[in-house]
Design a protein around this nucleic acid. Structure first.
Lengths: 151, 151
DNA sequence: TATTGTTATACTCTATAACTATA
DNA sequence: TATAGTTATAGAGTATAACAATA
């Protein structure tokens, strides 16, 4: 056969740290997206529910800063969660609005969180506990190079 | 002062492996993008030049399979590199075209590769060599969970 | 002056469907 | 029947600029 590749290719990029980091991240995010599909939430939406529950009465700007998402891009995210009846806004400032989970939001958060933890456990099961610790340590170290502006 | 946050927030997501993986990846990619800006190439374009040099006469579909980029999305990437005079196409099949670097493409590849290696060295310098090895091993293991279709 | 929320906009990345032509 | 290249299109994610209201 002479189908897509009897040819063997040189692979000069699988030893590039940035490349493998990006690919591993995209594999894990794709898995998470699939795991969360039953909740009707995307990973970022599930993450917001978790953050709002842990920080009741925070603002959407607070969430944006925690996640590295710009103010302008938080608007449709929060609006979507409100439209789904998972989050309530209430004015605090006149310019700020505090966020809290609705009862449905708490249920959905719990459902999503359980799926996220199971997802994480599936990936961690591929590593020894020492490897997991090493991975977390290394990633935390690399993140110190973050140069992104707050907004 | 009562500026953006005298308030301290709970952070229930920085211990989620998927989240830190995604953030670390985006930090490193942003740094790479900045480092490559002087070449006028995006990270994916530099990567393609490196792959074409290592695999002369490969097709754009071959590149797509190596990088996990779909056929349809390879079209503007390769067209852009051709328009810049960095890659030449020549028909092999009637349906396939083989890719090779032009002289300018080789120069640009070398320039970009040097910047990529320096970029990588800056990040690896934040870790011990044992930590670098552990990180690479762990990431390679996680990537085995890849469920993406070829095309 | 700085911050919050917002609108509008644009660019990149990714995904699907469909088509042509070739093998 | 499968592959290569292509077009068109849609959805995410992310970025900037600008504005109003408020602190």
């Amino acid at each position: 056969m002479q189908t897509p590749s009897s040819r063997v290719f040189q692979d000069p990029i699988s030893d590039r740290l940035g490349y493998v980091l990006r690919r591993a991240s995209s594999v894990m995010m794709a898995d998470l997206g699939g795991a969360l599909a039953v909740t009707g939430l995307r990973p970022v939406e599930a993450t917001i529910l978790i953050l709002v529950e842990a920080n009741p009465r925070c603002t959407q700007s607070d969430i944006g800063r925690m996640l590295g998402i710009k103010r302008a891009n938080m608007v449709p995210l929060i609006a979507g969660l409100c439209a789904k009846g998972l989050i309530d806004k209430s004015p605090v400032d006149g310019r700020s609005q505090s966020l809290t989970l609705t009862a449905a939001g708490r249920d959905r958060r719990d459902q999503a969180d359980a799926l996220m933890r199971a997802h994480e456990a599936r990936f961690e099961a591929m590593l020894s506990s020492g490897e997991v610790d090493a991975l977390r340590t290394a990633l935390a170290r690399l993140m110190l190079n973050d140069t992104a502006e707050t907004d």
